[in-house]
């Protein structure tokens, strides 16, 4: 047992060292492509950090969103930047030369002070703080699910999640408000991508359903399931998935708002029946949460894939 503890301690030290050095490399890298690849690696290591902190739910989300989809989003952005990149590089290097000594030293001093202050505050935190854990445990029987994280996200603090769904939708609306239209990419001629897509997409959909279902009892849930679904969407988009224009208007928008819409309607109905915002009847809480999560999974997946496209989608046939 002691040997295991020692090994885990060494692993933790190595992990912290790797995470910090990767973070530094990401920021100091001049080549954006390299920075993104390093960032994805950083996200995977962060997922490991969450595992070591015994937060498997966050580890799953970090691996799927932090390492997976964020990387894809950044790659998509880099692809668009490719036409302006040379200019940018010149501008960046010019800016670097202009930085005077004081503009380097002053932020450094400020940062050191902030780090010292925060470090002191963190060290003087009470070592063991239960927070709300006992409270959550006490009420688990009434929550309708068996996974405490799902109970907090969908029941005890379900209102936060309702608003978070709106935040996600707003992210997409903000991207769309930039006004660009994006044509779906042409069918890929790359045979590897094609066969990869044929194998992976059904698997991803299955994994997504599993994560959604298992979220009631074990780590998993709508956000993890949704991001896996989003990854399937990204793969489909890359391989040149053909979607007719008529499905990109009303049906797409319907899926995008489904998660927050079902949440709001459920909240309003429960307000009328139970007299409280999102007050589930204990016996019905289980399936109501599953319904909310299923709708949220679809919306999260569609939103993430649409974010990857980066504009109002347009069918490629419809010229």
């Amino acid at each position: 047992m002691e040997a295991l503890d020692f090994a885990l301690g060494l692993f933790d030290i190595l992990l912290v060292f790797l995470v910090l050095s990767l973070a530094w490399l990401v920021m100091s890298s001049e080549d954006l492509f390299r920075a993104i690849v390093l960032f994805v690696a950083f996200g995977l290591l962060m997922a490991l950090v969450w595992v070591r902190l015994e937060a498997p739910d966050i580890a799953l989300a970090e691996a799927a969103i932090g390492a997976g989809l964020t990387g894809a989003l950044m790659m998509a952005a880099l692809d668009r930047l490719s036409s302006v990149k040379p200019i940018q590089k010149v501008a960046a290097s010019a800016q670097r030369k202009q930085l005077s000594l004081s503009s380097k030293v002053l932020p450094l001093i400020a940062l050191v002070l902030i780090v010292l202050g925060l470090g002191y505050a963190l060290l003087s935190l009470p070592e063991i703080a239960d927070g709300l854990t006992p409270n959550v445990k006490e009420n688990m029987a009434q929550s309708g699910v068996k996974n405490p994280v799902t109970a907090v996200l969908l029941n005890f603090r379900g209102y936060d999640t309702l608003l978070e769904m709106v935040v996600l939708l707003l992210a997409l609306l903000s991207v769309w408000s930039l006004g660009g239209e994006r044509k779906l990419s042409p069918r890929s001629t790359n045979p590897i991508l094609g066969s990869l897509c044929r194998v992976l997409v059904p698997v991803l959909i299955l994994v997504s359903c599993y994560l959604l279902w298992v979220g009631a009892d074990a780590p998993g849930g709508a956000f993890q399931a949704g991001s896996v679904l989003g990854a399937a969407g990204v793969l489909l988009l890359l391989s040149g998935w053909h979607v007719e224009q008529k499905y990109l208007l009303w049906p797409l928008r319907f899926i995008l708002i489904l998660g927050s819409g079902v949440f709001i309607i459920m909240a309003a109905v429960l307000l009328l029946i139970q007299g409280g915002l999102l007050t589930y009847p204990v016996a019905q809480a289980g399936w109501m949460i599953l319904l909310l999560e299923s709708a949220a999974t679809l919306s999260i997946g569609a939103t993430l894939a649409a974010l990857f496209l980066g504009g109002v989608p347009k069918s490629r046939v419809d010229q």
């Binding site: 603090r157 209102y159 936060d160 608003l163 978070e164 709106v166 935040v167 707003l170 992210a171 609306l173 903000s174 408000s177 930039l178 006004g179």
Partner: peptide, 28 residues
């Protein structure tokens, strides 16, 4: 205070989306 954080995110993101609405380099 955590719920306030979520509402701040809504307000902030919607604000950014609205600010970029008019298009053009200056707005972006």
């Amino acid at each position: 205070i955590f719920n306030l954080y979520v509402t701040l995110e809504i307000v902030g993101l919607a604000g950014v989306g609205l600010a970029s609405l008019s298009g053009g380099g200056a707005a972006l």
